[in-house]
Nucleic acid binder design. Structure first.
Length: 186
DNA sequence: CCCTGATTCGC
DNA sequence: GCGAATCAGG
């Protein structure tokens, strides 16, 4: 079978369009699509006449802002204390302080130790595009790999995570101190 | 040095 | 049309 990656199939172009408009950087889109470099992505963006994106003035959102924004979607550690999540936590008194929850595992033992958890929802992986406000954004797997996805379970209203992952992400300082091990992901 | 998008130009 | 190399910049 000739597994030729059809470079820019309609589907891939569509995905490219959506991700680009989602505000993802070219490099991220590239890794998301897989098999293409960020240059390829940028090149395609231009050929499609999509350059400029927000096109708000000439301000290139590049740099920290964008990086933070992007990571906020991918890593649980990116939750800021001013975020609705943090506020909600304070108000509910469930948590005292945010824990810089483990960023996506370095070696990602997750993917290895992840047989086939989701049985309820569709077996389809929850990609960034499938995420809705009500879905758990806990990252699963290696963000640099195509199989990267999110938990996708019903998230606690006002929080970015489902009860299970919120418990891991937001641990009371006291509890953390006492029971520091946390073993990591699930 | 990390990153961003923009452009060029041989293929 | 494609995308690596390069450019220009935060």
């Amino acid at each position: 079978m000739t597994e030729t990656v059809p470079s820019w199939s309609d589907e891939r172009v569509d995905l490219l369009r959506r991700l680009w408009q989602e505000g993802l950087s070219a490099s991220r889109i590239a890794t998301q699509l897989g098999g293409v470099s960020r240059n390829a992505v940028i090149g395609k963006i231009h050929r499609l006449g999509l350059s400029g994106r927000g096109a708000k003035g000439v301000e290139a959102p590049a740099g920290d802002e964008v990086r933070k924004a992007a990571r906020a979607v991918e890593a649980p550690a990116a939750v800021t204390e001013t975020s609705p999540a943090a506020t909600a936590i304070r108000e509910t008194g469930t948590v005292v302080q945010l824990q810089p929850a483990q960023p996506p595992a370095p070696e990602a033992p997750v993917s290895a130790a992840e047989p086939e958890p989701l049985a309820l929802t569709t077996s389809r992986r929850v990609t960034i595009m499938d995420l809705r406000e009500s879905m758990c954004r806990w990252p699963l797997g290696d963000p640099t790999k195509p199989d990267f996805h999110y938990c996708g379970e019903r998230a606690i209203t006002g929080l970015p995570y489902c009860p299970c992952h919120a418990q891991i992400a937001y641990q009371p300082a006291a509890e953390r101190k006492r029971d520091r091990r946390v073993g990591g992901f699930r």
